[in-house]
Design a protein around this nucleic acid. Structure first.
Lengths: 217, 217
DNA sequence: CGAACCCAAGTTGTGTACATCGTGGCGGCA
DNA sequence: TGCCGCCACGATGTACACAACTTGGGTTCG
């Protein structure tokens, strides 16, 4: 395997573990331990940790360790506020055409949502939410906007998951399914601005519910 | 000096050289050469190049070298389109209060602009433009928005500089001074949304002039 | 004469030993 | 007994040697 491909795999794996709370905030990611697990030396591991550090998911402290960062309420609010605006923009800025394959993929996600509602599970919810996010990313025609949106999503995803675990999981899943249904309706009529507005509305409502679970209220 | 501070200095230095066209697109940045120049080993240099690579300013090819990237017309248009939207947002999303120190700083920049008009120079123009951009960044109250804006600005700054060197430099400087004067007016009345709109308008007009200098366009 | 092959030089990627730094615990002293 | 300082340990940061890879030129064979 090429070095670049290895890097991407390692990066995706660690980012996934962080955002799925396999590594909750405060966890120490030992370079030696990770190197041993993935069968490489510290060097490529450090390359990945440096990237995660630049993106704010971890923080390397000399002599201490590389720790998964936490996100304070202020930063969380700022990221969500910006994500709202960007979700709306994704509906108006040169969206990609809606194909049958796109609608089919969303139907599959909605079906997964139905199964999730029958058997609620926080981790499975988080995975499906990421898959849905990945789906919405493919509707964006502006690559720069997609890149920025992804960066912001993964920046706070773990905090969102942490909070909903303490909230009403059923309610969150219901709201998520409702968003997918509404987006599907808008997509069928090819109304991308409406898709953006719907997503913005749900990000806003999700954040309002999320604030209730934060320590500072 | 701490490792983190060294990293930041090296990063800022190399990013500056790339964006001021000391290293035009296609330039090979040899790790060994940079290490020798800055009196360190390849390791910290590689750490900085990795970050620049993640941000799309350079591209490392195994067995070839680390090359300064170019930006095609499509990507340039997408970045400018997003920068327009973000500039407008920066005026409406929780802007910072306008202090006397802020107005004073802008007056200084405007004075520098007057000197530049007397003695036009592409490189000095680029430096002043960066200083003005840095100034506008400090008006943004949303840290996430500021971070994203900075990333996008530096992503295309070198292409902009490359293009205006082939355009009418006097005209570009005049447009730049006009933007600063208009922003100063809006700031004096505390109208931040107007500041955002003015900046958006000038980004749009700048891009339209810039397109004339592109190969495809 | 041309084309295919090979190889040598130069570059980035990796592994590893060592330097540097922060922390917690242990021991001595008041 | 409590507190202060020292130090050993483990972590990240750095330097360097080597592996892997691309490229270009020289050489040889058809």
């Amino acid at each position: 395997m090429s070095a670049e491909a290895r890097h991407q795999r390692l990066y995706a794996e660690l980012r996934g573990r962080i955002c799925l709370l396999d590594y909750p905030p405060g966890t120490k990611l030992g370079e030696e331990a990770l190197a041993a697990e993935f069968g490489v030396s510290r060097t490529p591991v450090r390359r990945v940790l440096a990237r995660l550090s630049d993106e704010g998911l971890v923080e390397a402290r000399h002599g201490v360790g590389t720790l998964v960062t936490d996100v304070d309420a202020r930063e969380l609010g700022q990221v969500y506020a910006l994500r709202e605006e960007l979700a709306q923009l994704s509906g108006t800025m040169t969206p990609r055409p809606v194909t049958d394959a796109v609608l089919s993929e969303l139907r599959t996600l909605i079906a997964e949502g139905a199964k999730l509602a029958d058997l609620p599970d926080a981790r499975a919810f988080a995975r499906l939410n990421m898959a849905y996010f990945s789906f919405t990313q493919r509707l964006i025609g502006n690559d720069a906007l997609a890149e920025v949106s992804e960066r912001l999503y993964f920046r706070t995803a773990r905090i969102w998951l942490q909070a909903i675990a303490e909230l009403d999981l059923d309610r969150e899943i219901a709201a998520f399914r409702e968003e997918m249904r509404q987006v599907a309706d808008a997509l069928r009529s090819g109304d991308m601005p409406a898709v953006g507005m719907i997503r913005r509305a749900h990000i806003s409502m999700s954040f309002h519910r999320l604030k209730a679970a934060l320590p500072a209220g």
